[in-house]
Nucleic acid binder design. Structure first.
Length: 271
DNA sequence: ATGGGCACCTGGCTGC
DNA sequence: TGCAGCCAGGTGCCCA
């Protein structure tokens, strides 16, 4: 569910609530996440002060005095801030209770998310060490993309969804970025021309940036730290619009499958 | 090394 | 009404 804009929106929502707070209690109701929650997870966190909340790719990094929690929302996860004592509901797997009398609650119906404590540098963690560029950073540019795409036959849509190349671009924003750039999603990554890569880089940056500004995209169940949805859905040009007229040229939007994921594009605007 | 496909899991919707 | 089948915002792993 959450792509980079939704994770970043969550980060911005929880940071002011968590910063400088002491963790007074951690409740783990279900350890069966993508990786089992470690038996010492609660013990490692309890009593520590939260220093910062950062993001790398779609991972939230909760920096503590000693160590870091690496938190991923998977497909259906959300982190919300609630008053301590709020009764848990279905799929509320983890609570982090704060000295302020509030708590951070992790809900994840499909349990594809994870919460891992590490005492080492999170940048060196196996899940994070091999990640590609942050799309909103200056190092992500056409030269970088061209170098990585050289000689590769994978479809450009799957290429930009590959986190070893560029992080944070999921199924929604991949289709949307390719629409903005006017590129057909099935074209081979290595055959995209330089000026098209320039447009693609700008499209990825702009679509992610605009989505962050309005709190991300809510399709079904994504909510931010306050339980509010994101409003970028209204700005989607092609995603989940199969058969509907393209917002630019009125040609019906087409839906195909790539790597077991739905892709949407306009056969007129994208070549 | 690269690309393709599957697995993990629950819930909501569709169509018979 | 009930239920089987399909689909969903991610990503690690296995295979050719």
């Amino acid at each position: 569910m959450p792509e980079l804009p939704e994770v970043e929106t969550t980060r911005r929502g929880i940071l002011p609530v968590l910063k400088n707070q002491k963790i007074t209690q951690v409740v783990v109701r279900d350890v069966r996440l993508r990786w089992p929650v470690s038996p010492d997870f609660a013990g490692q966190l309890t009593g520590q002060k939260i220093l910062d909340v950062q993001r790398r790719a779609k991972y939230l990094l909760i920096r503590l005095e000693r160590g870091t929690v690496i938190w991923h929302l998977g497909m259906s996860g959300s982190l919300r801030v609630l008053p301590a004592g709020t009764p848990p509901q279905l799929h509320d797997h983890i609570d982090v209770v704060l000295g302020s009398g509030r708590l951070l609650r992790f809900n994840d119906p499909r349990r594809f998310g994870c919460a891992l404590w590490t005492g080492d540098d999170p940048a060196q963690h196996e899940l994070i060490a091999h990640l590609g560029s942050e799309p909103l950073s200056n190092e992500f540019d056409a030269a970088y993309l061209a170098a990585r795409a050289k000689g590769r036959s994978v479809a450009i849509k799957q290429f930009i969804m590959n986190a070893e190349i560029v992080v944070g671009v999921g199924n929604i924003y991949a289709s949307e970025a390719l629409f903005r750039a006017g590129i057909r999603p099935k074209r081979m990554a290595g055959r995209i021309k330089r000026d098209e890569l320039e447009r693609l880089v700008e499209a990825i940056k702009s679509v992610l940036g605009e989505a962050i500004k309005v709190g991300g995209t809510t399709l079904r169940d994504y909510v931010n730290a306050n339980g509010s949805p994101g409003y970028f859905r209204q700005k989607l040009y092609v995603y989940e619009r199969a058969g509907e007229p393209c917002r630019r040229c009125s040609t019906p939007v087409r839906q195909i499958v790539q790597g077991n994921r739905s892709t949407y594009y306009c056969p007129q605007c994208q070549q």
